[in-house]
């Protein structure tokens, strides 16, 4: 069973979860043997941007010691053999140039995105 994880929702609860919970879920599913591909669309294309940092947050005496590191999480997910794509048009509309995108993440046209959907057995849109 081939599943396409489409991630659209971005920076939702990422501080208190210290992860994007769908990228994290993808890691866990891959560990369980899942055959996954990830497509970032909408605001989630920003997850593929180099140089994100949420470090240094503190509330009173409480300090966050493990800030989310989504760029790293994408790279390590690719290291596990998961192919990650980012929607080209959504990057462009947000003014994100190709050189800002994490290495290894490929651009996806809408036409290719539709082909990816057709090739997948399950399409899970988050």
């Amino acid at each position: 069973m081939k599943a396409l994880q489409i991630v659209e929702s971005a920076y939702r609860g990422t501080i208190e979860e210290q992860d994007d919970t769908i990228i994290w879920l993808s890691h866990a599913m891959k560990g369980a043997g899942a055959d996954l591909t990830v497509a970032l669309r909408g605001n989630a294309v920003n997850y593929a941007v180099k140089g994100q940092s949420a470090a240094g947050l503190a509330f009173g005496e409480w300090q966050q010691t493990q800030a989310p590191d989504i760029e790293h999480d994408l790279t390590s997910l690719m290291g596990k053999g998961v192919k990650i794509y980012v929607m080209e048009a959504d990057l462009a509309s947000r003014g994100i140039s190709r050189d800002k995108v994490v290495d290894g993440v490929d651009l996806l046209s809408f036409d290719d995105f539709v082909d990816l959907i057709e090739e997948s057995d399950r399409i899970w849109h988050w």
């Binding site: 669309r41 909408g42 809408f110 539709v114 959907i117």
Partner: peptide, 16 residues
């Protein structure tokens, strides 16, 4: 702000 996604996807799949 994402109102075009489903109609666009539907139209593209239909075209295929």
């Amino acid at each position: 702000g994402d109102g075009d996604f489903i109609p666009s996807l539907a139209a593209q799949l239909t075209a295929k």
